[in-house]
Design a protein around this nucleic acid. Structure first.
Lengths: 220, 220
DNA sequence: CTTGACTCACTTACAGCGTAAGCGTAGTAT
DNA sequence: ATACTACGCTTACGCTGTAAGTGAGTCAAG
């Protein structure tokens, strides 16, 4: 053992992986806007500039934590029932992205070519192609599914109220949605207040529409 | 006229609207990351802090320019053919968002309750409700469509290559996608290189799936 | 055992950010 | 004339990412 001799206890070595893990933790707990080089360094009991011995710049950290999160998503089984696999893939992605609220934004705002992302995409295309989709059809299908999943997740993350409080929120804001100006928003609010509509948005709804359509497309 | 007397030419008065218009222009031409209070002020030949006489803070500017952009989108006609209107609304939104590349990100990352957005949503719900959808169904439909449109637009904006260069790009990157590791990504790249698949993603594809599904849902 | 190379955390510094606080002046209302 | 308001100005603070340079520790070769 070369370390810890003479009581000059070496700190646990900093590595790129430790940096990225700490970055994920920090973003999860404090929000992505709090992920600064200085705060991240201080979490690691180190100065900001020391991080640059392990990553080129902050962008490399962002790329790294995106790929770390993508690796949490369940990858489709090539050769499995395409519909089951696409469904599982989508719900898993949604769950993971809801766990790491900052991640979707990062995914859709940068080019992601980390190993986890490449593997994820490869398996997705593979599953579709093996199920009889042409490469072109698989490409379109994959793009449509992901567009929806990312868009849905972003909208859900962005919505500032919890499902339980929809009804009271609707009641509180109703005066600001005058019936003459916004008749249908007003109407929908009343549906929510009256409990006839829970106002919940559900990944399943749009996902079913897309997968149904893809099923038909595959048949032809 | 009270201004321009004694040759002490007053500068054109700063207003919130002039600030917002300049902000849109700046974001369009230099990118949203270049939209800083200082740069915006200098475009208006004014100091940064002067802007605060017309807007509370930068967030108010961001909210304002989002609503300005939303007002460019074609609003559905209540009482029109729902499918035609939803289609027009979606393609129009996509076009507008592609014109202002920074706007989608802003829309999906903040709560938008500006007048243009409220009117846009109200008309959308109205069009669907008048076409026979229940409020709950209209809510789900609208959410699914927008999730897809926003997600699709973000992915398209994010893609770093122009359609014309897909084939050569695929050829250039092929070595980095080894067949043993990523067989299907490799396969798809070869389809693109060979010209059998243009690699183009098309808003219509997923939109048709969703609208078809909604049609069926409305029938029942 | 010494020496030199290498690793890696450190300090300092800079330009840019949003914005709080306060000042000065032009124009309007009394 | 006086008071008030509107609004652009300057200054300053704490934050950001990171370029540049320093110095202490580890290790292999002579």
């Amino acid at each position: 053992m070369t370390k810890a001799k003479k009581g000059v206890r070496r700190r646990t070595a900093l590595t790129k992986d430790r940096v990225l893990s700490a970055a994920v933790k920090l973003a999860d707990s404090e929000g992505i806007e709090s992920l600064s080089m200085r705060k991240l360094a201080s979490r690691l009991r180190v100065e900001a500039m020391s991080l640059y011995n392990h990553v080129a710049n902050k962008d490399e950290i962002l790329d790294g934590i995106v790929d770390k999160i993508v690796s949490e998503i369940e990858v489709p089984t090539v050769g499995g029932d395409w519909r089951v696999e696409m469904h599982r893939r989508s719900t898993s992605a949604h769950e993971v992205l809801m766990r790491h609220q900052w991640a979707t934004m990062l995914i859709v705002s940068r080019v992601n070519v980390g190993p986890a992302m490449l593997h994820f995409v490869d398996s997705t295309i593979g599953c579709l192609v093996e199920a009889g989709f042409s490469y072109a059809a698989a490409d379109h299908a994959w793009n449509a599914i992901d567009s929806y999943v990312y868009g849905f997740t972003l909208q859900k993350l962005n919505f500032p109220f919890a499902p339980e409080e929809y009804a009271e929120v609707a009641k509180a804001y109703l005066p600001q949605i005058p019936e003459e100006q916004y008749p249908y928003l007003h109407g929908m609010s009343q549906e929510v207040i009256a409990g006839r509509h829970d106002g919940l948005h559900d990944l399943e709804f749009g996902l079913k529409l897309i997968l149904d359509g893809l099923e038909e497309l595959r048949g032809s």
